[in-house]
Design a protein around this nucleic acid. Structure first.
Lengths: 231, 231
DNA sequence: GGTCTAACTAAAACACGTTTTAGTTTTGTT
DNA sequence: AACAAAACTAAAACGTGTTTTAGTTAGACC
């Protein structure tokens, strides 16, 4: 690797680090490319040259975190269906440590129209879920007619949606956990073999008791701040 | 109602009609407030005075459609769990008639941070689902421990997510139907009473066979057109 | 009829993401 | 050392959504 590539990678790293830093600043949920460039001591054209878009920068920032996530997850003992539930717990624990950071990240992923970017994110996460489902099938907890790919996609989709709801500020973090686990529990109970099903449904009903009514939205004064762009 | 209010309502209607018209123009998936104002023959400040934001304008446009939706839905005979599946079919049929229109609408709903707006949409739709679930419980198709509110919220959330995936161009319309029905089928199968469960699972497995692999994304060249704003 | 006021207009302005242009370094190669 | 190519910079520009300002119009009320 020539010095050319080294320098470029260093600059990429600099931008990513700066972006991460800006994303972590609370009360400044959004940072502009102009300030990013300024803080990084770089021309505002450079991030575009190196990444292509603001979303790609944020994507690069969040890329480093999947490893952390996997580590945190595999640290937990995973017996039976509990892996799926702790998947949610682990995620929420991460979010709680650094809300504005993950909020910004989630929103960026969601806002992107770039398929490369979004699949860059979803694929490894989908792979993880798919493996968990496959394991459960092998253990005989999920009936074998189920295609791991399809089920994992569905579970991941639900989870992702609740994360987005949290990122948008529509639900609180505990709510996100409850709703996601409720959804995962339902999806799993549907395909669970008879032995595991009853207990799973019990869990679901228990979670259900903690869920707030729909329509009771978080009362946020909505300070009528500048609206986001639409399209 | 004095002439003042009448005029204001007429102008509101004019803007909504124009906006709907612009949203329906294919190949112009996004319209700007400037062109909206120009076409409507109105100052570009007026829509902001009357609605507050672009999203609110689009929201007002889509508001007229819930009635159509309900009509299309209740036209179908609804036996058992099929209501839920035809809910998806009816929606897809509407989308097919006017893709760019619904795409723009869905994206606007999704992009809004205004809780008033988003609940303005989700609430009536949630109410519909909740009623369907309640009916199913009364008919003894869903076990009575289930809270209609929670289940309906989960089903609606899944459906909504797949609609968004379609609106973003990540999946095709038939895919959206299959994935949404797969998800609804799962959710229902989980809580179905024994009598209905077996048949529901059969349906789910049948749908599963039609689902494409995850990760096989719609190959769209991504012409690197101007990116959307992030935050 | 005269005046007050809300509604509207036109136009400029702001901040943003992004692109373009033109000039300047820095690096690899001959 | 000289050159070519790539990387980077600074600054302007474009098109957004949105807000502001100042001025005009039209209904309401005495």
């Amino acid at each position: 690797m020539g010095k050319r590539e080294i320098n470029r990678d260093e600059k990429r790293q600099l931008i990513v680090t700066t972006a991460r830093h800006l994303m972590q600043l609370r009360d400044v949920s959004d940072f502009s490319m102009r300030t990013l460039a300024e803080v990084a001591g770089v021309s505002s054209a450079t991030p575009y040259a190196l990444f292509g878009s603001k979303q790609a920068v944020i994507a690069a920032v969040m890329d480093n975190d999947f490893a952390d996530f996997m580590a945190a997850l595999t640290a937990e003992p995973n017996r039976g269906f509990d892996v799926f539930f702790s998947l949610v717990d682990v995620t929420a624990a991460l979010f709680e440590k650094n809300p504005s950071y993950y909020r910004t990240g989630a929103q960026a992923i969601q806002a992107t129209t770039d398929q490369t970017l979004s699949s860059h994110f979803s694929l490894p996460r989908h792979g993880l879920l798919k493996d968990l489902v496959s394991d459960a099938i092998e253990r005989g907890e999920i009936c074998h007619q189920i295609n791991p790919d399809s089920l994992a996609l569905n579970l991941g989709h639900q989870f992702y949606g609740w994360i987005q709801a949290w990122a948008k500020g529509n639900i609180t973090l505990p709510d996100m956990v409850a709703r996601a686990q409720y959804g995962l529990g339902l999806g799993l109970a549907a395909v669970a073999t008879e032995a595991s099903r009853a207990q799973l449904l019990e869990q679901v009903v228990a979670i259900q008791a903690t869920l707030p009514e729909a329509g009771v939205l978080k009362t946020k004064p909505t300070p009528n701040k500048k609206q986001e762009a639409v399209s």
